[in-house]
């Protein structure tokens, strides 16, 4: 009995598409965690607090300040491993981790972020393309950290307990809070960078949520939203911390191709009743 096979013409074409898809995939460096879901933003970036802001160029309110406590533990391993760090000092709140890849591979941090290194990354002068940092909250009773990867991938980890203090959000003359999203939730104005990092400002949380389809309530609405989003990106204004002075635009959506267009948020009549306050969208 010959087993049924998929049409060879279709199969060959699909194979080529898969090759192109894998080849096209950029290797993502997880320096900035996107709180509202990856893949949503084209050409613009939300700022997350933490180790990524070590440059000190723009430190919005609400970002954490991490003070190191105790010694740095440095280990090198091949394959997945659990590193025992010993009990955290009394004032420790978080763990600062810096991972460096020594071979090609994908390396998973304990909080679900990951770093990938390919041969091109390894050929560049260290450490930029081989290093990623995360600050993860401590789990009570857990004195170890696990890095997951494939059996023959090698890495170095520097781990250090830190005391993390979250700076408070700012409040502008109109009583709106501004800063980065953190464990306390989402401020009225969320810090963003646009124009390849040249412009730093704030978007209204309510507008961001609404323009990203966050007010959709039923499966039918979700379907309609997805359909509309196939060829449509939405731009919302970027403001100074006063929430009034417009200094740029932030684009939401992943539509590309010849039929894709960007429309200003103000030109759509969307029902947006969210206030923007509340718990962080992705949980603690």
């Amino acid at each position: 009995m010959t087993m049924l096979e998929m049409d060879p013409v279709f199969t060959a074409a699909l194979r080529e598409v898969l090759v192109a898809t894998v080849d096209d995939t950029p290797r993502v460096r997880r320096r900035w965690r996107w709180r509202l879901g990856a893949g949503m933003f084209v050409g613009s970036t939300l700022i997350a607090g933490g180790a990524a802001l070590a440059t000190g160029l723009f430190s919005p309110p609400g970002a954490p300040i991490d003070t190191p406590i105790g010694n740095v533990v440095t280990v090198t391993h091949t394959g997945p491993a659990t590193i025992d760090l010993g009990p955290p000092p009394a004032r420790a709140t978080d763990l600062s981790l810096t991972l460096t890849c020594l071979t090609v591979g994908t390396f998973d941090f304990p909080n679900g972020s990951s770093m990938s290194c390919d041969a091109a990354d390894l050929s560049h002068p260290p450490p930029d393309d081989q290093e990623a940092s995360e600050v993860v909250q401590l789990t009570p009773g857990k004195d170890s950290v696990t890095i997951d990867t494939s059996a023959n991938a090698s890495w170095t980890l520097q781990a250090m307990y830190v005391n993390q203090v979250t700076t408070p959000w700012g409040t502008n003359a109109r009583g709106q809070t501004y800063g980065v999203q953190n464990q306390k939730g989402t401020p009225d104005l969320i810090a963003v960078v646009v124009d390849q990092g040249k412009t730093q400002g704030y978007v209204k949380a309510a507008e961001l949520n609404c323009a990203a389809g966050g007010n959709v309530e039923t499966p039918a609405q979700a379907l309609a939203w997805d359909k509309a989003s196939e060829n449509r990106n939405i731009s919302i204004p970027v403001y100074e911390s006063d929430g009034t002075t417009v200094i740029g635009t932030f684009i939401i959506g992943h539509a590309t191709g010849p039929n894709a267009r960007t429309v200003p948020f103000s030109s759509l009549s969307l029902d947006c009743s969210a206030t923007g306050n509340g718990p962080a969208v992705n949980g603690p």
């Binding site: 894998v22 995939t25 994908t106 390919d118």
Partner: peptide, 17 residues
């Protein structure tokens, strides 16, 4: 998982039917 195109295509060849 490391982006090896040939490997991913091998997986496709193995299972698509």
């Amino acid at each position: 998982l490391t982006g090896d195109v040939d490997a991913f295509v091998d997986i496709f060849d193995l299972h698509h039917n």
